[in-house]
Write a protein that binds this DNA or RNA. Structure first.
Lengths: 234, 234
DNA sequence: AAACGATTGACGTGCCGCTGACAACTGGTT
DNA sequence: AACCAGTTGTCAGCGGCACGTCAATCGTTT
């Protein structure tokens, strides 16, 4: 069975275009031009991903999203927005796993976003299912607690900041692999981030202080010159 | 649907000229004279190829490239450069799949570059799909891991630098074939590389240290006098 | 205001890749 | 066989740039 996609967009021409596009890419598409039926379709079919126009009759995109999120906050939602004001609202939602595309947009851009969201959601699902997400995981000689935001080694326990925790998560998910600086920036900071590369270094420095026995000669968080970093499990 | 091209060039006349040229060739063109809108347009449309002037208001070409590469390192980027200094910077980026054209340039030359880049990108895409690119491949008595940037033999594991990894890739793709020095320089260092031939030797030396049991009497990386090198699989 | 995390700039350091000098080698010529 | 010109191997050193580090700054929260 193909992955199913719910498309709620009230412009008939655009909706048909999107339907054709995604069907050509091998998706099953549930099209609708109305917020209320969008909700009904979602309840009935539970699509893997939802594309929501913000401006729609009956229920607008935000309202639909709100309803869906009451029952399910896994399924990724991609908003189609026209005005800058709407964008702010979408961003303001800060709902994990969601994204938006501003009109007008190109088909390639939409495809790329949909696929990125799918990958992200798939990773999240896999991670959640596989180990039921225990609170703690080990890193090097230390043990990290997600809930408590802290890392313990031997007889000391140090707090972890948000960025540090996220970084550790990324390394834990790919032990032994070299992870490029760009990828780290994307995974930890998000896709549209303008910061310098010094920022990443700095956080690595802080992490090494908490993870390594001798921060000057790291054993677990290794740098790969010109590429990125690598976590060498013990 | 036509292939879409993003053209970022702050000289109005030149930009219009390029737009006409490529539209006549059957491309859809997204023109802009500004780095920031270039990024926005890229996000909205995901063009198949990007032509970037280096000198631009708001964000220069390098900065735009850097941002784009954080989310996507497939799409080819063609830089338009005016000064020799800029050229060095472009070459210095070492970003695969990119190219540059120096001003002033002829329209035909530009077209040729664009089409060459398209072909290269298409090949890369096809290749990536075809074999799902396993992480490891064997070389001689060793096993090379791309993700880890390292090579393991018997009981030792040694890190590989960028150049070494690329060289090994080239040899792996053509086992038994003699590969000329020029071809190696092209494939690993890029089309226009000015270095001496000593550079290549040097890297071969380093590689043999990591690949051969007795580096003085190589078994896998053989030199073919007057031509180049040959990888003799075990 | 104080505390904290995140970010950035400035500066020092180390590594990778490049190069020049010279030795060793190869293949061809006498 | 000896020789020679061109090519390759090896070593040591250099330079640029990526990275490590420290400290100052900014923004947010309390």
């Amino acid at each position: 069975m193909n992955p199913t996609l719910l498309i709620a967009e009230d412009d008939d021409a655009l909706r048909d275009g999107l339907k054709d596009l995604f069907e050509a890419e091998g998706y099953d598409v549930l099209p609708t031009g109305n917020g209320r039926t969008a909700l009904e379709l979602w309840r009935q079919y539970r699509p893997l991903l939802i594309v929501l126009d913000v401006m729609m009759p009956e229920l607008n995109g935000f309202e639909v999203c709100q309803q869906i999120r009451r029952e399910d906050n896994q399924t990724p939602i991609l908003f189609l927005t026209a005005k800058a004001q709407e964008i702010d609202q979408v961003v303001g939602l800060k709902l994990g796993g969601d994204d938006y595309v501003t009109k007008p947009f190109g088909m390639q851009a939409l495809l790329a976003r949909v696929e990125a969201l799918q990958r992200r959601a798939a990773r999240a699902r896999a991670g959640a299912d596989a180990d039921a997400m225990p609170d703690e995981f080990s890193f090097g000689k230390s043990v990290v607690s997600r809930k408590r935001h802290q890392i313990s080694r031997a007889d000391t326990t140090v707090p972890l900041t948000l960025r540090e925790l996220k970084l550790l998560e990324v390394f834990r998910e790919h032990p032994g692999e070299v992870i490029s600086r760009n990828r780290l920036l994307n995974e930890v900071w998000g896709i549209d981030y303008y910061g310098t590369t010094r920022t990443l270094d700095q956080h690595i420095v802080q992490l090494r202080k908490k993870v390594e026995t001798d921060p000057r000669h790291p054993v677990y968080l290794l740098t790969v010159h010109g590429v990125g970093y690598r976590y060498a499990p013990p």
